[in-house]
Amino acid sequence: MENFDKHIKTELRDYEVDPPAGFWHNISEQLNIEEAITVDPARKGSAFFLLFRIAAIFLGVVFIGDKFQSSSNTLRIPTAKFQPEDLTQGIATPVANLETHKSSTKIIRAKVIKETTSPNTYLVANSEDVSNHRENDIVVPEKEEVTVTNEEVKADTNEDFVINDKSIPVYSLKLISKEVPENDEFSVIEPKSKDAQKKVIVIEKGISKKPSLDVRIPYRF
């Protein structure tokens, strides 16, 4: 039995029969069809990644554009530093921190306590509690209020604001709302003051211009 199997295996294992002539052309044609139908997986993958890259770039541009727009809507005025002893001398003059150009102003939020008859004018007070702030809430410097006289403020001029002029107080306001119109105005009062007064601050965009301040009381931000 083993000899029988062994002999047949030996004879047939390497036995060759020539296929019909031209048979390769049949296979070649079938390969052409298969290759035309089959989508190259590498190309399929690269197309997917190309679409993915385009989508990622688009999202990145949208994200950066949104960030840029939101930052440009925030009005920032460099704050001026002042010495506490200046307060004791009656007139405090903030000192502009131009070297580092960093804001040393501590930002707090102001709370609307009363809406005035003017649609864009709000009465606000300093407060750390910001639980009920509105869309047009503003932030004002904390503990850096100084008292100056009306003579020191020369408003309603369109001259470039010279920040080196130490006689001009510079304060910072940070507007939370992104859509505060230019030349809008709001009123603030000091609740702790004995003679609580209000003042009106007009918003101007662009720090190169001197801010228009209409100070009605000897208190300002």
Binding site: L12, D14, Y15, E16, V17, D18, P19, F23, W24, I27, S28, L31, E35
Partner: peptide, 24 residues
Amino acid sequence: KSDRKFQELLYKKFAGKMYSVCLR
């Protein structure tokens, strides 16, 4: 690399043996 030249070489190398397998 789907090079037809090498595919044909492979065919010529194994066609005889494989055809006998198919016939069996």
